[in-house]
Computed example of a mutant assay.
Amino acid sequence: MPGVYRPQADTTLLMQAMLTATIPLDKRVLDICTGTGALAIRAAMAGARSVTAVDISWSAIVSAWLNSRARGIRLELLHGELAHIPHRRLFDLVLVNPPYVPSPKEVPARGRARAWEGGAGGRAVLDVLCRMMPRMLDSHGIGLMVHSALCEPEATLSQLRDGGLKAAVVAREIAAFGPVMRERVDWLESVGLIEPGQRHEELVVIRADRTQE
């Protein structure tokens, strides 16, 4: 659907991490920033008991609904800001492919760019999600989050651990810059986020585990 962020290398890497993780079937799954619903649908196909998908974009919600209906998959679809993620509900698996592209501008309040714009260091949304993760996971719950290594994976690991979770990088992949990154290579070079002539980035999937009741 026009205006919806299509699945790319980060979605594929996160999906692979989900499918290879030691996560029993018949679990409650939350997919944050669902976009087209690709991850939510795959989780349902893998046997999840229930899948809740959240996005700030109405176009994404409609796209996820159409894609899930076409496959006979039932999703709970919620539209809204991160603050609208269900309170007092815990999940066994939380999937997150957030906006993380570093930008010289603030995160936009509306428009398609909300799907990727992550603020100056790419962490405007990441930091919020790291703080939220501990309160979303049930006992022995697992969180899987993908983002670029340009956005300080160590900061993600540190924040998750500060929240009482066990955290580690469980997947890595080198990916060529997509259109958005290619458009801002001059700025990325000027602020030292990439080397001169660099046209690739490392993607990482970080796993967070709640190990205590």
Rank of each mutant, 00 (worst) to 15 (best):
N97F: 05
G119F: 09
A109V: 13
A120Y: 14
D26H: 05
S190M: 01
T22V: 04
R184M: 14
C151K: 07
I56S: 11
L137A: 12
T20A: 05
L150Q: 14
N97P: 07
R123Q: 12
D26V: 08
M133Q: 11
G192W: 11
A113R: 04
V125N: 03
L77R: 07
P153T: 07
T36C: 02
T52P: 00
R172Q: 12
I142W: 06
R88P: 00
R28F: 00
Y5D: 09
P102Y: 10
A38F: 05
L77P: 05
E201I: 06
N67A: 03
R210C: 02
D127L: 01
W58K: 08
R114W: 04
N97V: 09
L193Q: 08
S139D: 15
D55C: 02
A155M: 12
E173T: 15
I61W: 08
L25T: 11
A175Q: 14
C151E: 14
A113C: 00
L93V: 15
S103N: 08
P99H: 09
L66K: 09
G119K: 02
G141D: 10
L39K: 14
R112Q: 15
H140I: 03
S103G: 05
V94W: 05
L126E: 14
I32V: 12
V128T: 09
V204G: 05
G192C: 12
A124R: 05
G3H: 13
E173W: 11
P7M: 07
G178H: 12
T11F: 04
G37Q: 06
E201V: 09
M181S: 14
K27G: 06
A208V: 14
A43C: 00
T156V: 13
M18S: 02
P2N: 08
E202Y: 11
A113E: 15
A149L: 11
A43H: 00
E189S: 06
P98A: 10
C130I: 04
V96P: 01
P104N: 08
E201Q: 10
Q16I: 07
D186M: 03
R6Q: 13
T52V: 06
S158H: 13
P7H: 10
D92E: 12
E154Q: 11
S59A: 14
E81L: 12
R114N: 06
A83K: 07
S103Y: 10
G119A: 11
P86E: 15
I85T: 15
R112Y: 15
L203H: 10
R110A: 06
G192R: 02
M15L: 12
K27E: 13
S59K: 07
I61M: 13
R74M: 11
G72M: 09
G121N: 08
W187R: 02
L126K: 02
G163E: 13
